[in-house]
Amino acid sequence: MKRISKYPFLWFVLLCGTISFCADAQEIKVIRFAELEKLISESESKVTIVNFWATWCKPCLEEIPSFKTISKKYRLKDVNLLLVSLDFAKDVERVKAFATRKDISNHVVLLNEPDYNSWIDKIDPKWSGALPATVLLTQTGKEFYEKKFEGDELEKRVGTLLNN
């Protein structure tokens, strides 16, 4: 401890590192649709999973563990997981608490774009707007699912897409 006190810079780095780590684990970004488009288009992973969910959506919460399992299994270069919450913006604290508890904060953003009709078709014209809904994006294609994934269905599908 005596030694480290001689290096104020190191203290600074450690402190900043701790703060940025904690901030990553807890804060939920509230974004507009343009920012979501940017997040998706800048993803360089082989498979980008974009899941639309909300804390009030029971089937959504039931499938979240399977998303987490997949993101833990692969490196970012292979799989990028984006969990897009459609909770109302005023409920961001509830989203934050849930995400922290489930250890998924670094994948979660809250999309605050209340004129739903203006952007649902941009995700997929077949989407009714019901949750959950998921897009699997590869470098060459896109699959859209308006449903809850059961068992290891999603894991198998992602595995297949990675091997293509």
Partner: peptide, 18 residues
Amino acid sequence: GAKAKSIFPVENKTIALN
């Protein structure tokens, strides 16, 4: 990321739709 790709490529499979 240095390389940006279009938001969704053309090929589009919709599976197991409600």
